[in-house]
Structures are given as C-alpha cells and as structure tokens.
C-alpha cells in the first residue's frame, strides 16, 4: 500500500513540475512565435507583389505598400500600386490543416502568387504541396469557373493545374480549399475592388 502511495505522489509531482515548465515556456515563446508568423505572412505578401525588403524593414515596407482591409472574419491585403489582392486560405488536408497565402491579379480571377505556410501532409508525397516549384505551376491559372486539374491527353484549359503525383487526396483537398476560400472571399474582394 505504502509503495502505491509513493508512486502516486511521484507521478503527481512529476506531472505538476513538467506542466509548470510547459506553461512557463508557452508564456515566454508564444509572443515570439506569433511575431515570426506575422513576419512570414508579411514577407510572403511582399514577395508576391515583387516588393524589395530586408528582415529589418519588412514591417515598414508592408505598412507603406500594402493596405489591410478587414470585414468580419475576413482580411484582405491590397497592394496599393498594382491593386492585386492577397488573402490567407486554410482548410483540412489529409493529416492536418493546410494554411497559405494566395495573391490574385487586379481582375480578381488570375492567380499571381501562391505559397503554403503550414501543412502536415505526408513528407515526400503530399508534402510537395508546400514546394514552391510545384506551386509555381499555379501562377497564371484562373479561379473561374473554378480551379481544376488538367486531364491527361486533352488540352489544358486556363483554369487547370497539375496534380501531385502519388498524392490524390492531398491534391483534391488542396483544390477544395482554394475553391472554397475563393468563394468565401469573392464578394468582399469585389466590394473592395470597386
């Protein structure tokens, strides 16, 4: 009996001590991690619009070149000079959320730039979804009537892009995420565009 009490006490103390460490680390690192994420988002949007910046000036340049418009839960980043529009998309992939930034041309239909910032797809297969050289194939594709995959043996239409070989489910989820987020932002973008 005594040994069981001892074990229980040990488990409780160990659990409390480690939890305390985690809470402390969380408090300490969360603001830094959030700041890193914000910088990453801003530098991605600046990259998409071809603006030059350094890690020290990213916030300054972003404020000067990009206008942030917020409505309800939606946030649009409008490039003042060219009128191209960026927004963050997110949705479920195969193993976890896929989050990224898409930038559309002024016509609100043509993809100008696309980056995936966070994903948990199978490394080497679905993980290709975050590969910039894969995403480069989306540049210039059109979101209307809706983004789709090219059919082998037929001519590629303006709204068609390549699938990821060996990752059918990731490809399908990614297409769905892009199309759904486009629809949910469309009305807001048209309002801002006018």
């Amino acid at each position: 009996m005594k040994s069981y009490t001892r074990m229980l006490t040990f488990i409780i103390i160990l659990g409390a001590a480690t939890s305390l460490i985690f809470v402390g680390m969380e408090f300490w690192t969360t603001p830094l991690i959030e700041a890193n994420a914000a910088i990453e988002l801003r530098s991605t949007i600046l990259d998409a619009n071809g603006e030059a910046y350094t890690t020290a000036t990213v916030n300054e340049v972003f404020m000067a070149k990009i206008e942030t418009v917020v409505q309800n839960d939606l946030t649009l980043y409008v490039h003042r000079a060219s009128g191209s529009v960026s927004y963050e998309f997110s949705g479920s992939g195969v193993w976890g959320p896929i989050i990224g930034i898409i930038t559309l041309e002024r016509d609100l239909e043509t993809i100008r730039h696309l980056r995936v910032l966070q994903q948990e797809e199978t490394p080497g297969l679905g993980g290709v979804v975050a590969d910039p050289s894969y995403l480069a194939g989306y540049f210039g594709a059109r979101m209307v009537p809706q983004l789709d995959f090219a059919v082998p043996g037929t001519d590629r239409l303006p709204n068609q892009v390549d699938r990821i070989t060996g990752a059918t489910r990731t490809s399908n989820s990614f297409r769905t995420i892009l199309n759904n987020s486009y629809l949910s932002y469309l009305e807001f973008m048209q309002e801002v565009g006018d």
Partner: peptide
C-alpha cells in the same frame, strides 16, 4: 516524461528564436 519535456522545450525554443 523527462525526455519529452526537454524535446518539446527545444522545439519551442527553436520555433521562437
């Protein structure tokens, strides 16, 4: 428990800095 605590601490530290 001890190993995971250190690993997660390292992971958070790397993500922050």
């Amino acid at each position: 428990v001890i190993i995971s605590t250190y690993v997660i601490t390292v992971q958070m530290f790397l993500a922050a800095y």
